[in-house]
Computed example of a mutant assay.
Amino acid sequence: MNQLDILIPFALPPAEMARDLLRQCQAPALAMLLARGKTAAPTQSHDPFSRALPHEHWLARRFGLPQPAQDSSPAAATALMRSLGHAPSAGHWFVLHPAHIHVARDHLVLTDVGQLQLDEAQSKKLFASAAPLFTEIGHEVVYGDAATWFIRADAWAGLRTSTPSAASGRNIDIWMPEGPGELAWRKLQNEVQMQWFSESLNEEREMRGLKTVNSMWIWGGADTSAAVASAYAAGYGLNGWTQALSSAPASLPGAADIAAGNGHRLLLLDQLVEVALAQEWGLWLQRMESLDREWLAPLLASLRDGAFDAVNLILTGADKLVQTSTTRGALRKFWHPPSLGKLLS
């Protein structure tokens, strides 16, 4: 069966704003797919304090990542290492991100790590500064790219961590690691923070109006023995750890290129994540309408033309997930007028 899964994180706006936002939203292709589509599964509610966002949990399950015994971030570290050209030594690895944590009124808040704007030269300087603190206590540390490093900590297997997206913009006390190695991690994190406090690099960043790099975020603990079994013949729009899980094309081609393919494919449209985490709902409207014009409208046309047997939408919010499936035949159900009502689920 030739079908396409389209995952759109944060397509479900917050319940308290949803009606006002959707009243203004001009997304006719999405409205058609939702109205003529069949609900593929009951709406899934997620714990708002879960250590990963709904779309991250969904991706982890679909790509066959090991599911932790307790709520934790997806076990993505070793797959991400391999995608960056490293063969991890046997053991338990975690992802590390250089990060900025700022002081709110009475708590500390993690800034979206994707917005740090840390270049390769700066990252390597910070890595060189911090690495001895890891190695002197027996931890192997590996540089991946400017935003992504790795630490091996076998004794910390079972440490419950949170994805940076789940923790972004929130009181970090709720999202800090818990379990084996918790105290050792906090001590190491504090030592790195002190090491970086006096870095001239941070002074230069402040002068340029950039956020200082004053901490690290850990997540994604995975053993090198963990295997990943992709459910897809091709994946598009994947980046970061999601790209690492797929051996399929990682680029974002045009809608026509996707329609020309065969098999079961996944398209990740994550343009809403950044603005939703920042609670920029005016920009959310603009990007939603842009996604509809540039992606959903041509893919809807391809479904009409028979390029797909089915288009499956997986739409998530901060604590919900909705799935619908639309076939070519279902588009003839003219008695179902286009509607964004399912986004209110």
Rank of each mutant, 00 (worst) to 15 (best):
R62C: 13
R62S: 07
F63A: 10
F63W: 10
L65V: 08
L65D: 12
L65Y: 06
P66T: 12
Q67C: 15
Q67R: 15
P68H: 15
A69G: 12
S72F: 12
S73L: 06
T78E: 05
T78G: 00
M81Y: 13
R82I: 01
R82W: 13
S83V: 06
S83N: 07
S83Y: 09
L84C: 00
G85D: 02
G85Y: 03
G85T: 03
H86I: 12
A87S: 11
P88R: 13
P88E: 11
S89L: 14
S89H: 13
H92E: 06
H92L: 03
F94Y: 06
F94D: 06
V95C: 12
V95M: 12
V95G: 04
H97E: 13
A99P: 02
H100M: 06
I101D: 09
R105P: 13
D106H: 07
D106A: 04
H107L: 04
L108I: 05
V109G: 03
T111L: 07
T111H: 12
D112I: 00
V113Y: 00
V113C: 01
V113F: 03
G114M: 01
Q115N: 07
Q115Y: 02
Q115D: 08
Q115L: 11
L116E: 00
L116S: 00
L116G: 00
L118E: 02
A121H: 10
A121Q: 09
A121C: 07
Q122L: 06
Q122H: 09
S123W: 03
K124R: 14
K125E: 13
L126H: 06
L126K: 10
F127I: 11
A128D: 10
A128L: 00
S129N: 08
A131K: 15
P132M: 08
L133C: 09
F134L: 04
T135H: 09
E136N: 15
E136F: 12
H139I: 04
H139G: 13
E140C: 10
V142H: 05
Y143S: 05
Y143I: 02
G144A: 08
G144P: 04
G144S: 02
G144K: 05
G144T: 03
D145F: 13
D145I: 06
A146K: 04
A146T: 04
A146R: 06
A147S: 14
A147Q: 13
A147D: 11
T148N: 11
T148K: 12
W149G: 06
F150R: 04
F150N: 02
I151R: 11
A153W: 00
A153M: 01
D154I: 04
A155T: 00
A155I: 09
